[in-house]
Write a protein that binds this DNA or RNA. Sequence first.
DNA 1: GAAGAAAACGAGCGAGCGCTCGATTTTTAT
DNA 2: ATAAAAATCGAGCGCTCGCTCGTTTTCTTC
Lengths: 252, 252
Amino acid sequence: MTRARQAGEAPAPEPYATEAICGRILERHRDTVSVRKAHVATANLARIIEAVLRLSSRQGFHETSLRDLAKASGLSMGGLYSYFDNKNTLLLMILTEVAQTAEAVLGNPPPGVAERPAAHLRWLIETHLRLTEAMQPWFVFAYMEAKGFPAPARRIATEGELATERMFAGVLERGAAEGVFAIEDVDLTASLIKPLLQDWYVKRAKYRKRGTTIERYVAGVTDFVESAILARPAQSPPGSADRDGRNPAAVP
Amino acid sequence: MTRARQAGEAPAPEPYATEAICGRILERHRDTVSVRKAHVATANLARIIEAVLRLSSRQGFHETSLRDLAKASGLSMGGLYSYFDNKNTLLLMILTEVAQTAEAVLGNPPPGVAERPAAHLRWLIETHLRLTEAMQPWFVFAYMEAKGFPAPARRIATEGELATERMFAGVLERGAAEGVFAIEDVDLTASLIKPLLQDWYVKRAKYRKRGTTIERYVAGVTDFVESAILARPAQSPPGSADRDGRNPAAVP
DNA sequence: GAAGAAAACGAGCGAGCGCTCGATTTTTAT
DNA sequence: ATAAAAATCGAGCGCTCGCTCGTTTTCTTC
């Protein structure tokens, strides 16, 4: 996904800065961006996307008019259309970048990790949380704005989600086969881990207000998940203890 | 919240049918609804809300025009305005109903349950899941559409969420004090349980496609949470096992 | 079944939307 | 310095939006 930089160009010190990400977007959309000088195009695209992420987080993408966006990004109405051919394309640029980045980062565990399910699971949790922290506005946007759009945009978002869920399911499967994890339903368990990770960026404001650090959250989720699924050799299987409180459902 | 019905009126057999809920909404908004005959108003309000929930789930509330809504509900443009004074009020009607129902149902455990934390936690999980299942379109709407709206609507939604989270924190706190639960950080754990419950209605389509029943999901979440937090007398505390795979974060 | 009240109707209003395109400014090359 | 090319500009177009209000239909009552 990330291409090697040309010699002489300064190496990006911060690969998840808006400008760096927009460089990658530009490569993927050279045909829709009519501005040819790369550094100008990258800088302006970064201002546009920074603005659209900020405005959309407040009022939603649909409710963000191109006039608002022009004002916030410092370009004119017509100027914007040098960077995308219509508003939907702008949305797709962001969604595909998020999906591709997530797949590229989470799909490449460091050597030695993938072989040990317990370590791999740990790495997936921590890396997922740190990636979404570094690109928080992007992931929130993808999560919130994917709904209610023409099929292609929706597809990209849900496919991306399923892809990472499948990574978790794969690790759990291998761990269960090796006897490291004790899991009844692998797919369901993978489904339950996903929202624990999404909560960190979807409800970021709540955790910020409480002063919860990412280190604390990583540790909390890791402990929670491991306590739930790690095989405990000298003990009865989970779910068999404390079977008292079975109450009739209050809702018919 | 639910008032006693007048004698002679048929008792509602299904308290979470759209019509029944709309009856309650009507009581709360008698002043904004100009139609005076109760059964006419209830029926039409139900058709309006059923339509707006359906259309919004596809395309979002903002993107649902009142012309679409008029067509889908079988009323005219002007007719709609006999039931709300502006589009925002319609949104607030739904949000407040969801928040009030959740608080009323979850805040009233059957006698005997609230005294035993383990049973109370179980009841909260199952009741939350069954309530959101019975009112799924309502909860999805509240979750998805609360963003990007004037402060009051946003407030209602986030307050409702925090209220139920506090119920969980309370139970966990009591259980930890009694030694039934082994929990390091009660507030963080309560925060982690919430998204497990929300996932059931937010990603309902995924679970439907997989054929996951609500019974299966209730059991899965209950086991997952209990395995993570139930005190295990004859064992080392959670988080101390398998501390090998600590890897450096891949994301700076 | 006629008269009054209640409810429903839908064309029309101003405003704001996404998008275009000829004019203008800035950059590059000679 | 100047001309060609690239980039930017912003008023204007057609359209849809939320909302109104005089008219028509339906229901109630005697």
